[in-house]
Design a protein around this nucleic acid. Structure first.
Lengths: 226, 226
DNA sequence: TTGTTATTTCTGTTATAACATAAATTACAT
DNA sequence: ATGTAATTTATGTTATAACAGAAATAACAA
């Protein structure tokens, strides 16, 4: 899961060599996103070092990166623990996601190649037809991110990509916790294909509006959960 | 500069105690933002340790944070160096800033207290009347950030605040390099007060549009520079 | 002079161990 | 039994030193 997952942007262009810090990051993040390390759990440096098979120095590095990712929180001089997805944090995550993705929609409305559109439609179609009963919430979340991540990629703007990645990590963390009660079978189908229609229209404002509606649908659904 | 500067969000709520990593971060970031460490300059771990008076471990921590801030870039297994503000990076920074601040404008249009408006107007007025000849570009950039940062604060959304902070750090880095040729005396006055007018109108779309225009003015001016 | 090889230096990385502080536990007195 | 003090344990932090690989320099041959 750690190497073939597009979520992990860790330096993986290397020649198979993994730094010790990367090893620790991969293991710990995998445990968190799989729900093994539950929110609020304390992540002791020494325990994590023992678990991952490296020393405390690379563990500190890994925990720092995880904190930047929003998966871990730290009180200085006290310790690190798995982030608890509170209502407030989820709302904040959506505020940022809306900001990023609306901007992405505007940029792409300004100029998206037909080649890019083709690629996106190939992702959108199966995504809009997912059998919700057969997939876990986490899997669906990752599939969703795949589409939006590719969309953001096509802006060529890495700063937007990095910001979006964080919101997705947090979203997956929330889904991994498991107390999700929303009924996703009621979600609109064909949303992503319609979204693409609006983007290729070339009208920035229309594209933005469609994206905002798309995100708000997910937002409203989650607000009922928490 | 390190403790009274609102740009530095490092854990400064502590009881005067500074961790070694924080010491290193403060010193190195100050040198970078002051232009002493020029873009492209290699920041050797050992040299930085000697300079800051701490060991290499906290220096690594500081460099990691500086990389997250966008002030430093690293090639794994090779080293860290001061970020060079290329045209592409500046454009990307503006894309992110526009995304963040337009969202801020929308949120505040939805509900900003009169107390908050009062505070913002007290910052906006002198900002709109700055004597450009008497201030350095860096000082003006910091003053500017003070307004926009406070604006973002009032959304209560720390994720937007963190994202905005990065764009501002990069902007200041760019200004610190010094080859800025734009004539800022031609910039519109009263822009920030007018911006507040649009936000308090309560119309999200109007607020967003005004913010976008505000940022684009700065954007267009800088594009001529680079 | 120029191209090649060997050596030296420098670098990022990380394991080990020490230090100081906070938490938890025990010991003890009331 | 309960509150307090002493002690032990655990933890974050960081200095030191070692390891491996890259870069630069020196030595040497053509």
């Amino acid at each position: 899961m750690s190497t073939d997952n597009p979520l992990f942007s860790g330096n993986e262009e290397n020649t198979g060599f993994k730094t010790a810090g990367q090893v620790a990051y991969d293991i710990i993040s995998e445990k968190i996103l799989a729900g093994v390390f539950e929110p609020g759990m304390k992540l002791s440096r020494r325990k994590m070092a023992e678990l991952t098979g490296v020393s405390v120095i690379p563990v500190i590095d890994a925990l720092n990166r995880l904190e930047e990712d929003g998966l871990v929180e730290s009180k200085p001089q006290w310790g690190s623990f798995v982030t608890t997805p509170t209502r407030k944090k989820i709302i904040e995550m959506y505020m940022l996601r809306e900001a990023i993705e609306c901007q992405v929609a505007r940029i792409l409305a300004d100029g998206m190649t037909s080649e890019q559109e083709k690629i996106l439609r190939e992702i959108a179609k199966p995504l809009d037809n997912i059998k919700f009963a057969k997939e876990t919430h986490v899997d669906i979340a990752k599939y969703h991110y795949q589409f939006h991540s590719r969309l953001t990629d096509f802006t060529g703007c890495s700063t937007l990509q990095n910001a979006l990645r964080k919101t997705s990590l947090f979203y997956i963390l929330y889904k991994a916790v498991g107390h999700t009660r929303a009924d996703y079978t009621q979600e609109s189908r064909y949303w992503h294909e319609l979204l693409l229609d609006e983007i290729v229209s070339g009208d920035k404002d229309r594209a933005e509006q469609a994206m905002r509606a798309h995100i708000n649908e997910s937002y409203e659904a989650i607000l009922k959960d928490i």
